[in-house]
Design a protein around this nucleic acid. Structure first.
Lengths: 177, 177
DNA sequence: TCTTGTATCTACATACATGTAGGTAGATAT
DNA sequence: ATATCTACCTACATGTATGTAGATACAAGA
């Protein structure tokens, strides 16, 4: 895999997180990377192929991150806190969850990408569920869904209001009391 | 105010809720209404004017709806349930919260529209806060923020997974237990 | 050396989005 | 009757998005 391909994916990731997948073009990518837009087509024939590659890659790196958190922190609360801080860090650059962004663009994406997105959220929810299970919650999958929903929604509100603490406010019931 | 202007606003509302504000064009509006795209410009000089008019109108109709719920239902729980059912009804047509959708498109909208969106969410949160206050919550504004975040996030997840019950699952802690 | 693959390029095709300029037809007001 | 307003129109300008066709430079393998 060429370095250029990686650079395209990374840049597309950033732009999707800030502007949405429909918020940038191959011309934007090409200009920033310093090649021609037809060269982007060489790596990703259609933009929908780029979308699929992005979500597939993001699913994998996210799974890795979860595995890493599992052995980095002994307490589930600390893992959840780390997750929250991760999203807050992106938020400071105006970036929100890649897959949340694409979920908002649901109508314009292919069924392949939709399926991949659904798998991402399922993986996220399953991992959260394990954390709440360890914490002794009576209904871990439910708690996981509530955490995930609150996270995605609060990211939208926090960015709009320019206040990253909105995310922690929306989620503090899960990691504390 | 002409009937055409109203039809434009209504259609733009529906399309924003399903495809996002950047997911339709003046040509789409014109084709559906049966006029030319330049006639849309007559009513809304620029697309950003349309955005502003939409959010302003939505703020007003939402405020009216809240006032109506207040005297239609005696118990705050019933009002919250009605709100949830309202969003679930839209969801069955593939439509999610107008302002949630536009919040996701944050980067591409003008500061005027951003301010109007922020006012919408503030109004929503304030009303929710009153409900939780009546219910004896210890921190009503916090509960309101959590409800609102979970609502917006669960709409994205529910639409992606094609399961409206995800919304009630994400919010049942607020209206029950 | 010849062939194949990789990564890029130039040039073009097609479509759409956003708007502007200027005209028209009918209603209303003076 | 004349002037103005409302709501629409045709025609066009400009820019952008997505993508294709075909050429080029260069490296590696048979």
């Amino acid at each position: 895999m060429s370095d250029t391909r990686t650079r395209i994916l990374d840049l597309a990731n950033q732009l999707t997180q800030s502007r949405g997948f429909n918020g940038f073009s191959y011309l934007d990518l090409a200009a920033e990377i310093g090649i021609k837009n037809s060269s982007i087509h060489y790596h990703f024939k259609a933009k929908s192929d780029l979308a699929l590659a992005m979500v597939e890659q993001h699913r994998k790196t996210t799974a890795d991150s979860f595995a890493q958190l599992d052995h980095q922190f002994a307490r589930p609360q600390d893992r959840l806190t780390a997750v929250i801080q991760h999203f807050q860090a992106d938020l400071r650059d105006g970036k929100i969850c890649l897959c949340g962004m694409m979920a908002a663009e649901f109508q314009s994406i292919s069924v392949d990408v939709r399926r991949e997105l659904a798998l991402y959220f399922r993986g996220f929810q399953d991992w959260l569920s394990k954390q709440f299970s360890e914490l002794g919650h009576q209904n871990p999958p439910r708690a996981a869904l509530q955490f995930l929903s609150a996270l995605e929604g609060s990211l939208l509100l926090a960015r709009l209001q320019g206040d990253v603490t909105i995310v922690s406010q929306a989620l503090d019931g899960f990691v504390n009391g």
